[in-house]
């Protein structure tokens, strides 16, 4: 049985789709069966970042409404054979999603894949709440700036109240992924520090993805950053984050902070 993870944020444009694709590809690279699901009905982007926009025949809405079966809608990645995409519809909108339909689709995906990554739309309305409703865990993507942090706080509140897990009293594990971090700007006080963000949001840190031009380059080429641009700083950070998601304990080194020689030689402290 697979794990369902919602990648959400509240705020738009912080890196949910980029992160869903990057984490999905990183997990698939280690041989796991991964599906990335686009919940942004009407404003779909995941297909573009995955480079699959010219192969979309059926989508999530078709499967929810029963006009197509799941295998007909799943698009296999050309580069990683265990990575699949379930795209969203571009011609409909979020009202076409029904809770029962989404429940059915998620249940079926859970049986076929080790990881089901749900790319949530921005906002707190139906699309976002349905994307999180059946999740086991959540990755909350946040930029180190005030609007994004407040919106993430709101979304965390919703994760603790509007999901099936929360309603049945179970814990929904939440992971913080800080994206577009620029250590120089943080040092100048133009951006929040990692500590500030952690203090406000109080959820465990999954990783810090540095700001980089490579991300835009990769998405214009139709590839997750962890496939195209694999050695870049954000890609390496995503690979580490994926390993932490899978349960590995890896110390987080803040960008811009050099590990002392002593620590490098003698210490690989567990995080």
């Amino acid at each position: 049985m697979g794990k369902v993870i919602v990648v959400t944020s509240g705020k738009g444009g912080v890196g949910k789709t980029t992160s869903t694709a990057a984490l999905g590809a990183a997990l698939a690279r280690s041989g796991q069966n991964v599906v990335v699901v686009d919940f942004d009905v009407g404003l779909r982007n995941l297909d573009l970042v995955m480079g699959a926009e010219r192969r979309v025949v059926f989508d999530l809405i078709n499967v929810v409404q029963g006009t197509a079966r799941l295998p007909q809608a799943l698009i296999r990645d050309k580069r990683l054979e265990t990575l699949y995409l379930l795209p969203a519809s571009q011609t409909r909108d979020k009202d076409a999603l029904t809770e029962d339909g989404v429940e059915r689709v998620i249940a079926e995906l859970r049986m076929r894949f080790d990881w089901v990554l749900c790319d949530s739309p921005a906002g707190i309305e139906r699309g976002a709440t349905l994307a999180m409703r059946f999740a086991d865990e959540a990755v909350v993507v946040t930029n180190p700036e005030v609007s994004s942090v407040r919106d993430s706080d709101r979304i965390i509140g919703l994760l603790d109240s509007k999901t099936i897990r929360a309603e049945s009293g179970e814990r929904l594990e939440k992971h913080l992924l800080i994206s577009r971090f620029d250590p120089a700007r943080a040092a100048r006080g133009e951006m929040l520090n990692i500590e500030d963000v952690l203090e406000i949001l109080s959820i465990p840190l999954l990783g810090i993805i540095p700001e980089s031009e490579e991300v835009l380059r990769a998405s214009n080429l139709g590839a997750p950053i962890t496939i195209c641009g694999r050695e870049s700083a954000p890609s390496l950070a995503y690979f580490e984050a994926a390993r932490r998601l899978a349960g590995e304990t890896i110390e987080i080194v803040y960008p811009g902070q050099k590990r002392g020689l002593f620590a490098k030689l003698f210490g690989r402290r567990a995080a």
Partner: peptide, 27 residues
């Protein structure tokens, strides 16, 4: 005993409220 997140309201007209955590902006 949990943080009160942005957008949440704790409404308790009968007495004191004690929060063991932070109150988020917008809560």
């Amino acid at each position: 005993d949990t943080p009160v997140r942005s957008g949440q309201t704790v409404f308790f007209p009968s007495g004191d409220v004690i929060v063991l955590g932070a109150i988020g902006s917008g809560a």
